[in-house]
């Protein structure tokens, strides 16, 4: 159906946002790419009194490297993420995730900040930023604060964002030569939200041993699920079939998938185990030698 009636204001600076929020209170909603918000308005799932367009705020744009940190402005569109040379070099997991997100026309509008703020439990980017141990930069009239991605997602479609804050940027520790990452998922149709997915990040030492593994599953809970047991099963181990099997076994205690329209919990558990092997197999010595 048509969107409900609302007003539209264009913010040029963060000060404009703070002022418009002060004027309109809870009726004000921020819109960037709009690929989720505008679709939900068509269902009348919410009826904001005013949409505050933040897409022209320069401070929220751009991809830069500062020391060993990649800073990605919240307004970076998925398509930009997919073709940015700095992202490809320093956070290849994010570039690899892009083709899984919806469809080309949507990737040309949707933004990383919007995806993280919406926090869909089956979305790719929330899982990726947790896997990469990224930090979210949250801005408010009081200044900035930084929240670890793993602390940011607090529940179903819920985040640590306070009403007066917005996501300004994502800071990702730049990949090193030892870094390995992969994203895999199962979806019924191309571009659909995943039935189950895995964003994985780890370091592989010269001795072939794994350190700092972070296996983050999506589509299997209320948000991205950092699998502590499966990750711990890999720590310090040489990556081989036995280590992968140990991670798969430990996964049983890490996830507690709900039943949903795709199927029962045991199906998702099965998919998560399969995805674990698919992702980690890429880093086996033979697979790396072949690539």
């Amino acid at each position: 159906m048509k969107w409900p009636a609302f007003a539209y204001e264009r913010a040029s600076t963060l000060q404009d946002v703070w002022r418009l929020r002060a004027e309109h209170g809870e009726g004000a909603r921020l819109v960037a790419g709009g690929q989720t918000l505008l679709a939900t308005l068509a269902f009348r799932l919410s009826e904001p009194s005013v949409l505050v367009d933040i897409t022209r705020i320069e401070a929220l744009r751009g991809v830069t490297v500062q020391g060993s940190t990649l800073r990605i402005g919240a307004l970076t569109r998925h398509a930009e993420l997919g073709r940015d040379p700095l992202v490809a070099r320093h956070a290849p997991l994010l570039a690899e995730a892009v083709p899984y997100i919806a469809h080309p026309a949507i990737r040309n509008r949707g933004t990383i900040g919007g995806s993280l703020a919406y926090a869909d439990p089956a979305a790719e980017l929330p899982a990726c930023v947790v896997a990469l141990d990224a930090t979210l930069v949250l801005a408010s009239p009081a200044g900035e604060r930084r929240v670890a991605a793993r602390e940011f997602f607090t529940g179903l479609l819920e985040t640590a964002l306070k009403p007066d804050e917005l996501i300004a940027a994502v800071e990702v520790p730049a990949a090193t030569p030892a870094s390995r990452s992969a994203i895999v998922e199962v979806a019924r149709r191309s571009g659909d939200y995943a039935m189950a997915g895995l964003a994985a990040s780890l370091s592989l030492g010269a001795d072939g041993r794994v350190s700092a593994p972070r296996l983050v599953y999506f589509g299997v809970g209320n948000g991205p699920v950092l699998a502590a047991g499966a990750s711990a099963a890999l720590e310090g181990k040489a990556l081989d079939a036995g280590a992968i099997a140990a991670a798969q076994a430990a996964l049983a205690r890490d996830i507690d998938p709900p039943s949903d329209l795709h199927g029962p919990p045991e199906m998702k558990r099965h998919l998560a185990r399969v995805l674990t092997a698919r992702a980690l197999s890429r880093f086996l010595p033979a697979a790396e030698a072949a690539s």
Binding site: Y8, R10, V31, G34, Q35, L38, A39, A42, L51, D53, T55, A79, P104, A105, I106, N108, R109
Partner: peptide, 13 residues
């Protein structure tokens, strides 16, 4: 220059 969903774009923007 890039394709979009016209139904998910605000004309006012």
């Amino acid at each position: 220059g890039e394709i979009v969903r016209g139904c998910l774009v605000l004309a006012a923007s």
